[in-house]
Amino acid sequence: MTVVLETRNLVKKFGGITATDNVSFKLHKGARHALIGPNGAGKTTFVNQLSGVLSPTSGTILLGDQDITGWSARRRAISGLARTFQINQLFADFTPVQTIVLAIAERESKGSEWYRPAGSRSEYVDEAVDLLRQLGLSDVMDQRVGSLAYGRQRLLEITIAVAAKPHVLLLDEPAAGVPESERDQILEVVASLSPDVALVLIEHDMDLVFRFAKSISVLVNGALFVEGTPNEIANDPRVRQVYLGEEELLHV
């Protein structure tokens, strides 16, 4: 299987704290991978380094066979690495259509066109409308993003990332803060994404993780603790002990 994203001995230190501890990690094409771990395990820090929001203290990040360790967030994005944020990072005054048209225009390197009105490329608008429909947002597509319900904003967060047509998509707690009743919709959306895209899901909701993932990595104190299939993870006594305590929790 092709490796699409890889880290080698990745380390990130904040002063005396080691937030990422020598993580070597491989992601294969079309993966459905979950990254779990207790609070403060360094999951978001890890994703921030992958996406270029933070730069690692040492180690290497490879996208395909290219070393992207020194690349900017922007360069990674246009090279096919997209992400969502745990805390919504949206354009509050835009509508969903505007947001996605913007993302498509930037993907096509047409974001600096000044001689024709925004929205005059109808193929972008059409694609945006299709995408919003696919992700269940067509009914609110011309409402102000800032006024949308939280669950809808989470979906838009994913739509923005998908609009980039990434090879690798990092989903940082896509269901965080979403009411129970709307979580299924997010999982459906995530499950419906193209099988060619390698997905990394960071999530606390174990139910979601075990329904989604084909492989799981457990991060503890910044280090990779164990990797395996959902079954292996669920039956690993060390995981029970370290991550889940002694509670009876895992029922696949």
Binding site: R74, A77, A82, R83, F85, R107, A164
Partner: peptide, 9 residues
């Protein structure tokens, strides 16, 4: 931040 991560220069 979001602008950068959709690939905007």
């Amino acid at each position: 931040l979001r602008s950068r991560t959709i690939g905007m220069p």
